[in-house]
Every structure is written in C-alpha cells, then in structure tokens.
Amino acid sequence: MGTLSQAVINGLTLGMVYALIALGYTMVYGILGMINFAHGEIYMIGGYAGATFLGLWGGGLSVPIALGLAVLFSILVSSLHGAGLERFAYRPLRNAPALAPLISAIGMSIALQQYVFLTQGTTPKPFPQFFRQDLVAYEAGIKLFGGTLSPLQGLIIIISTLLMIGLSLFVRHSKMGKAMRATAEDRRMAGLVGIDINRVILTTFVIGSALAAVAGVMVSAYISTIFYRDGYLAGLKAFTAAVFGGIGNIPGAMVGGVLLGLIEALGVWATGASDWKDVFSFGVLILVLLFKPRGLLGEVVAEKV
C-alpha cells in the first residue's frame, strides 16, 4: 500500500480476477439471458477445492507441480458443480418466465453456500502457507515505480491474461466457439441449423466455472484464506464488472473487470477509506447504469417483440 503505483499494481491484480469471474456471468448472460447468481459460489468452491487439494495431497510434491495440480483439481470440482447447476436447476426452467430461473439461481446460491458451510465449517479455510510463502514474498518481487509486484501478483496477471486470450481464440475460431456465438445470437435458429443447444449451454457453464475456479485458487493463495461467504461479494463485484463492460460481451467483461479493480484500488488509495472499498464498486455500478446502461462495449440491441 502507500504509493500510487502500488495501488495500480494491486488494482490490476484484483481486476484480472474480477475479469475472470465476470466472464462466467457474461457468457451465461449472452446465451441464456439470465444472471447466474450462483456463479460467485462456484468461484468460492474452486478456492476451497484448491486449498483442500494442497492440504491433502500437496505434501510430497514440488511447489509448482502441486499448485498446477491444485488448479486442475479445482477446475474439475467447480466445473462439475457448474454443470450440475445448469443441468438440474436451470435447464428445467429454460423456457419459463424470466423470474423463475433467477429465483432458482438465488436458491442454489444459498444452498451451495450452506453446503460448503456445513461440510467445511464456520472458520475460514487457510490456504496452505507452504505453497504461497515464496510467491507472496515481497523481497522477491519486482520493483516498479516505487511499488512492488510480488511473484504471485505477476502470476495472477499473466495467467489471467493467457486465459482470456485463450478464451477469445476459442470463441472466435473453434467449432464450439462458433456454436456458442450462434446460440447467443438466436437460440432457436441455432437449434434449427443442427447445433446441440444443450451441449453448448453445458459447455458454457463448464468454461465459466473453470475460469472462476482458477480465479478462486489464485485469490485464496493471494489473500491466504477462503471462506464460504467470499463467493457472494466476489460475485457481486464480478457482475458489476460484467455490466460495466457491457453484459453479454466477452471483451467487455475483461475490460470491465480490470477497470473495476483499478477504480477500487485507486479509490481506496485516494480517500484512504478501505472500509468503503465495496461501496466504490457499487457506486460504479449505479453510475454505469445511469449513464451508459449498455456498458462500455455493449451495443444497443432493440428488444424483440
């Protein structure tokens, strides 16, 4: 903390994570037109899965391999949860009135939170210190304009950037990506030309959950704990990021996430009021909705009758 450049570095790190979670929101919104309120919980479950993996099986492995496996394990766990969510809580409601899937999502969000609470306990789960101590050591960091970029922060920024580039390439060039874009454009029409809608939607949930899982592991390593209530606030902010960039728009979520992280960090830096940090992001949400409801990169879409 302290200097401006440190605030920028912290904000950028946080923003990258918001962007990763926001992608899950925005992809689901783009295709189904619903807010997946339980997405924050998927992120939280990812964090728990990573910490649990390291605690149970990380012992004999070298640090990079253990972390890599932990990320893969949490991707697996989160994707299963995300897919289950889609299959059992959202698919039966796909053609229901708009309110039904939203309420179902809220219910599942609470249920997932409680199920983690019941199985993992009331205290925050610590991320095993052994695996993060070298990464968060500020002495090992790179000095940049008076601020320090710790290895973990650098790693978060690099991994997030790579994942986002990967996702963009996937959506743009792969067959499934094309099918996803077609489904987002017009679900019924996509079905008529032979796209398996259910598979596309399931894949969307799996990809979104996987990204959230990576974010979950990285954040729990970054702040050293993970708690069953963490998903809700992270989800709220990531959603703000998605709206900021223009919901349903993948590059928008990335830009929105990074900007939101920066605004939050700089807001705290400028005012010194770290208690009000969460109020800044909400203020951003209100302002965006007031002046640019389609978001920074969103396009104006006429509502279909």
Binding site: A100, I103, G107, S109, I110, A111, Q114, Y115
Partner: peptide
C-alpha cells in the same frame, strides 16, 4: 438455510 435454498429452486 440449505433447505430454504433448495426449496426455492425446487419450487420454481
């Protein structure tokens, strides 16, 4: 709360 959450989704 687990029951309430599941009940909401089930009810829908």
């Amino acid at each position: 709360w687990l029951a309430i959450g599941l009940l909401m989704a089930l009810m829908m």
